[in-house]
Amino acid sequence: MRKTVPVVTAFVTGVIVTISFFFNEHTTLIGKVQGGILQWVTIIFGLALALGMVSITRVNFNKIKRKQEGWFYSVLVIVSVFVMAIPSALPVSWSPMFGRNEGSLYYWLWTRISEPMMATMFAMLAFYIASAAYRAFRARSTESTLLLLTAVIVMLSRIPMGEWFLRLFNESLPDWVNIYIMNGFNLSVQRGIIVGAALGAASMSLRIILGIERTYMGKG
C-alpha cells in the first residue's frame, strides 16, 4: 500500500497529462482536467518550498539545542529566516512595512542585504575561476588545447582591447569568432546536448509513469 498508491498516482496523473496534450485545453474536459492538475502541482510545489524553510529552521534549532560548534551562526540563520518571512506574510493593511511591496521590510532586506551579498558571492567566483582556469588550461592534450584556445579567443573578442588585438591578425577575426565558434561549434554542441537530454527526460518520464523508475519514493 505504501508503494502502490504513489505508483498508481504517478501513473494516473502522468497518463492524463500526456493524453490531454492532444485535446483542446479550453473546450474539452480532459484539457480542463490537465489545467487543474497543473494548478495543483504549483500549490504542492509551493508547499515543498515551505517545507524547505521548516527544514532549515529545524536543522539549525537542533544545532542550537545541542550547543554544537558554531551554534551562534545557527541563531543568526533562524533570526534571518523569521525577520524576512513573518513580515512578508502579514497583511499590508496593518503596516506598509508588511507584505512584499516596495517599501516593505521584505523588499528592503532583499534589495539592501541579499542582493549585494548574492552579487558579491558571484563576483568572488571570478577569483576562483581564475585558479580553475590555470588548472584547466595547461595544454596537455588536443582537447585541453582546444578548450584553452577557444576560451582565450572568446574572452579576447568580448573586450575592446582584445578585439583590437584580434584584428591585428585578421580584420574579420572577431566576426568569425561570433559566426563560427559561437553560432557554429558552440550552437551545434548545445543543440546536441539539448536533444540528448530531452530524449533522456522523455524516456525517464515514461519509466516513471509506468512505475519502472521508483527512486523518487526513497527507501522504506
Binding site: 509551493g46 524547505g52 540563520v77 534571518s80 512578508s88
Partner: peptide
Amino acid sequence: LVESIFAGLSAGYYFGLVWDTVLMQQ
C-alpha cells in the same frame, strides 16, 4: 556571520514568495 544571514534571508525570501503567490493567490 554574513553567510548565515544570507542563508536565512534566502529561505525567508522563498517563504514570502510562496505565501503570497501560492497560498494566498492560488
